[in-house]
Amino acid sequence: MIKLLKCEFMKTRRRYIFVTALVVTAAMLAWIYPRHHSADLLRLGWMANLYELPLINSIFMPLLSIIVSSRLCDIEHKGLMLKKLAVTEKRGRIYDAKLLYGLAVMMLCVVLSWGATIAFSYIAGFEGNVPIKLYLLYLLFTAVPTVAVYIFQHTLSLCFKNQAVTFFAGAIGTFFGTFSMFLPQLSWLRMSLIWGYYAVLMFVGLFDWTKENRYQFAHFDVMGIDWTFFVVLIFICVVMYVIGREIFKRKEL
């Protein structure tokens, strides 16, 4: 596998995969920060992040997944390289190596944006210390839906020559996933979409916010964390991986 990962690294030379991923992450951070924080938000800042960021992640992480998976797989289609690789290595291993490489890029971006969020929050002057346990939980609940979305995008990118298919499937999923966050009454919608799990795994709620007083009397609280959906998502990841790998193995080149 090390040999295959080394080859993946060599292939991406001059493709600027890391740079592209970092630019998208930077764009995401530039969209969130800097912004004006009222005294109330400075008081509530650490928890407010955990309430707001899943929405941002539900847009940017799938978008990043589309870009990274497509750039990684498109080189194989453009160069007609899959038929060459398939006679030198087991197809399952080709699928795995590319998936691992792409996931490494994605996880780097997830961790960087997580770290940058904490850093920017300190710079903004949020009151108190970072609730590290909750932030680690947030990191986990950002990473796992991203893995699920990436496996989906990876399989599409590898199996379809036309990357427009990948883009539209990802864009439609992202739209419904994000849209589902604005429809709390339709919980089944976000639970049935992998893009909706950024919302399903949200564990901070906003209480006592009113139009008149806004954040003056508002507070953010940790809601009950239902680990069932986390387990469901892990299961979905495994199923998508097994199915995606099998589809690629059976694909005629």
């Binding site: 453009k78 007609l80 390289m81 030198t88």
Partner: peptide, 21 residues
């Protein structure tokens, strides 16, 4: 059919990948 290669890499880099594999 058509030859397989990564267009963004040089000839030697293309062969280096195959040599590693």
């Amino acid at each position: 059919e058509s030859p397989s290669f990564y267009g963004h890499l040089t000839g030697a880099e293309n062969l280096k990948i195959l040599q590693t594999l």
